[in-house]
């Protein structure tokens, strides 16, 4: 399984970015290889409009199985993400990636 996080940083100790479209980074954890990698999303963050759809495009290209975020994607991003067969878990704001991952493993995060 590949897990994607919207994150304010690039490590396990980074805090989840509650925003989807304007998230600082998209961090991917590959459970198989146990590798953590980060994609800088700042170019999208700086778009005047359409950040939600642009970030959806990126997430699609990273093809995770699960997305863990805070507030949940806005209207346009939700429409886009519906087309990806991906589980979206919200309400992980204020947590570090590590804490959010543990909560996910224990089934404590809410699915949209």
């Amino acid at each position: 399984m590949k897990i994607a996080f919207t994150s304010s940083g690039t490590t396990w100790e980074s805090i989840i970015d509650p925003r989807f479209g304007r998230t600082e980074y998209i961090v991917i954890f590959d459970e198989e290889s146990q590798e953590l990698s980060a994609v800088d999303n700042s170019s999208v963050k700086n778009e005047a409009h359409g950040a939600g759809t642009a970030t959806s495009q990126r997430v699609f290209e990273l093809s995770p199985d699960v997305l863990i975020t805070g507030n949940g994607p806005g209207d346009n991003a939700s429409t886009a993400l519906k087309h990806l067969k991906m589980k979206i878990l919200v309400n992980a704001h204020d947590l570090t990636l590590r804490q959010a991952y543990e909560k996910y493993k224990n089934g404590e995060l809410k699915e949209v």
């Binding site: 970015d17 479209g21 409009h49 805070g70 507030n71 806005g74 704001h93």
Partner: peptide, 12 residues
């Protein structure tokens, strides 16, 4: 519109 959506995004 978009600005208020951005104001709300991430709010507690």
């Amino acid at each position: 519109g978009c600005p208020v959506v951005s104001s709300l995004s991430g709010a507690s």
